[in-house]
Design a binder for these strands. Structure first.
Lengths: 163, 163
DNA sequence: GTTTATGCAAAGGCTTTGCATTTCA
DNA sequence: TGAAATGCAAAGCCTTTGCATAAAC
């Protein structure tokens, strides 16, 4: 789907959601949605606030938080807590279900997909009678880059001791 | 392992960790470790603070936070962010690797194990050259109890409309 | 005797809330 | 017109920090 089509599509979905829920269709809400779908990857409220400040629709943080709740409920946005206190978000349409690999060395977040997770979800659903809505799998560790840097430092340290 | 043995074991592990890292072996640190291993399931800082207040070693919140960092580094405690801002913790020894099912209705957290996750970890490790240290799989949704309650409310509402 | 840890209180950062003003329906 | 959303600032909550005191080594 082309970017313009995606924007059009999520606009329609949000519009339907607001109408169905008895919420008002304010320009702020659609401007926020548009900006979110213009961002690549993850973002936090502060980044979104900064970007909105540079548009002609300069919304307040309070409105951002309110609107995020609506978008989460509408399933147009996903929320993450990658171990820090501040929440991270990402657009939910377009990109399918995926999980996250988090480097505890440099903080980099990579995405990956594994169909086996779906099997685990199904099992939980069956065994516990749980109605699964979504999941989050975070794999923590050290990325290849950081491992490499760490090795180089070790070598350098050895060289310094035994020149 | 009997509870007393576990206490003895983690005490020893922490003692070794502190010694190796050049940290001091204060009574507060061991009292906190002991209290953590006396708690069942998950807890947050506030709950731990409350429990410590009732012992003869009444540590400050600052010391709790400091000590949690050490215990996390020593791998004697695990930290979780179950979607809320405040961090949840649990003891890391005894209980093996497990994952969490979180009810977004009542907030209840259940645990489960699924060996298939290990396969996913291995794949990430192989494909990305990532050195995996740990993971967290959170499955969100509505638990059986909340589904039941929701159904009852729907029935009651129907009965009220059509008596 | 040094250096590190503790405890208190204050500051910090992210998020929520209260209330006057504006705006959508 | 009436109810709901916005924006601002203040308050809230969890967490971190600075500094004097106390304790480990």
């Amino acid at each position: 789907m082309a970017p313009a089509d995606i924007q059009q599509n999520v606009h329609r979905l949000f519009s339907e959601y607001l109408e169905h829920g008895g919420h008002r269709k304010t320009p702020e809400r659609f401007a926020i949605l548009r900006e979110i779908y213009a961002v690549d990857g993850h973002f936090d409220i502060e980044l979104l606030y900064g970007r909105m400040q540079q548009t002609k629709c300069q919304v307040s943080r309070a409105t951002l938080y309110n609107t995020m709740d609506l978008l989460l409920d509408a399933r147009l946005v996903r929320k993450h807590q990658f171990g820090t206190t501040q929440a991270q978000f990402e657009k939910a349409q377009i990109r399918g279900q995926h999980d996250h690999v988090i480097c505890d060395g440099c903080g980099k977040v990579q995405e990956f997909c594994d169909p086996r997770i779906q099997n685990v979800r199904n099992t939980v659903s069956e065994v516990l009678g749980f109605r699964v809505s979504h999941h989050a799998l975070h794999i923590h560790g050290i990325c290849a880059d950081c491992q490499k840097k760490s090795n180089e430092r070790t070598k350098a340290a050895r060289a310094a001791v035994q020149p």
